[in-house]
Computed example of a mutant assay.
Amino acid sequence: MANRPHIKHTHVYTTHQATDLYIDVYLPQLTESETPKPIILWLHGGYLITGTRNAIPTWLLNYALAQQWPLVSPDYRVLPESTGLDTIEDVLSAYKWVVQSLNQLHPECRAEPSRIIVAGASAGGWCALVSALHFSTSVETIPPPCALFLLYPMTDPGSEKWAQSVSLPGATVDPDTARDLLEDIPRRIARGDISVGEEFPKAEEELRTRKRLPLLYAILEKGVFLDYLTGVARFGQSVVSGGLERLVDERAKRLFPLDFGEFGSSFPPTVVVHGTADGEISCGESEKLVKRLAEGGVGVQYLPVPGADHVFDLELQECRVAEGGSDEPSAVLSRALQALRRHTDAY
């Protein structure tokens, strides 16, 4: 089964220099009820370097369409041409667009801006987490998220792992290509280039046409991911040699949610799903987040998927309830969706 029948609308939600950033709105073909609908704001993964707004799990989109919930997926600026602070700015702009413009442009969707689920996978989980922390620590005139849904999220970029060389399973880039890609980054930044990522390959032959995957591998293997996240040269080296605390000013603290985030009663209830055999982003990052949330009195539900790797859900079309507390991925994700529904109903 592919995606359920739907209507897709695309809008420009913000512009940087001459680059328009787009946001897609997915609606069911017919809305059969006048009841206001929760909204899913989906933030794609890709290590903040690649991926696009089209990278939406089929099972999640199908669930949203079946419930007649609008699902909204934006572009955002990515590394290394931009910094993580630019990414946060875009994610918050997309959130505000949903609150202020979605119903104006699409009154037929009957969206309820006070019930926004911010959801994301991998680096998109980081985007969701930092956006929710923004509402916990600032005075806003728009409603905060009613819930977070984090799928195998990157939550701890301040750890030494991300400050050093990281080799992703099965990911290789030859040394000459890596050197050329890394040497070109300062020129891109000096020109003011902006990127919103690149489509993930859907087949093996497409791997040869992708330019940002080798860039991703080179940045991680060189150990300079934190340099481009912060926009500070040799930042990762400094973290390894002296720790994070002395390096980070107030503005940059937003990049490191587990080190500097304030998780208290105003933080939205959170559902976290992570495979226990994730070879790219350890489930330990989620476990650390869950502990922090629980200590802060935040309602949190952690649903580990035994033996599952990163992007374990890639081929799933639907999530079905299974009897007997099954640990199959579809069943675990179904429980996560049920939990999110309870949060939206209680809001």
Rank of each mutant, 00 (worst) to 15 (best):
R77Q: 13
G243S: 07
A132I: 11
T172L: 11
V224C: 14
Y22W: 04
G45C: 01
V139P: 04
K222D: 12
G125F: 01
L71W: 02
L21M: 06
D193M: 03
L213S: 07
T230A: 00
S326L: 04
I281N: 13
F135N: 12
R179D: 12
R246S: 15
L43M: 01
I7W: 00
A252S: 04
G324E: 03
R335W: 00
E315H: 14
I185N: 04
D313V: 07
F256A: 02
V72Q: 05
L105V: 13
A121E: 15
T35Q: 14
P268R: 07
R341A: 03
W42F: 03
G197N: 08
E108P: 11
E199R: 12
P74Y: 07
V118I: 10
L293F: 07
Q104V: 12
E198H: 06
T50W: 01
Y63D: 13
G120H: 05
E318P: 03
L71Q: 10
A163H: 02
T19W: 02
Q317K: 14
I49V: 10
L340Q: 05
P175G: 07
G243I: 01
R254E: 07
Y76P: 13
R77E: 08
L182R: 07
H9Q: 10
R234F: 01
E323W: 05
H11A: 09
G197F: 00
D259N: 14
A178E: 08
